[in-house]
Amino acid sequence: MSDNDEVALRMRAIEALLIEKGILTSEVVDRVASTYEHDVGPLRGARVVARAWTDEAFRARLLEDGTAAMAELGVGGFVAEHVIVVENTPDTHNLVTCTLCSCYPWGVLGLPPAWYKSPEYRARAIREPRAVIRELGTELPAETRIRVWDSSAEVRYLVLPMRPAGTDGLAEEDLVGLVTRDSMIGTGLAAEPVA
């Protein structure tokens, strides 16, 4: 039996035992799984960013108290209670990691991608952020300062990426589509509009 089959079997036993003992029901577990597989995803964060790009007062509130401002859009929930929004500027680029495990603003971005949880990303994001960002596909200008934010159980970070050039005429709902997940982690930039 492979390691993967073994842990899959162990997990099946854990769930079965919890259900037998009446500690959980499979319906409750199904509901959580379904929420995170289908309902919670980075589209939520993209809506927050697009609003910040188009509504200056909202942007100010978001940077002041991310959790409260996002709640205005109905975004929040489990382990998204304390989200700090960090804003990219022409001078400063922000990057989010979690060196100890995999803390991530679930309520805003859904679950993290596999690479975010990898030992390599967690080890290197703080040590050599510029190289990590480059390897993930974005070359930042040499003069741009990079700030790395290490998440914790108490504080999760969301990057507010810069609004791409050439999007002045776009409405909020059209901007949403330019906000990639990676731009909100800081490993990428918002997408350019298609000419």
């Binding site: 993967n4 842990v7 899959a8 997990m11 099946r12 854990i14 769930e15 919890l18 500690i23 959980l24 409750v28 577990v29 199904d30 959580v32 799984a33 995170y36 597989e37 489990f78 859904g110 679950l111 596999a114």
Partner: peptide
């Protein structure tokens, strides 16, 4: 989001216990 079904169960059981 999950590579295999058991991963979704592992994640969801931990969250359900918290909730």
């Amino acid at each position: 989001v999950f590579e295999e079904p058991w991963q979704a169960r592992a994640f969801s059981v931990a969250v359900a216990m918290t909730e």
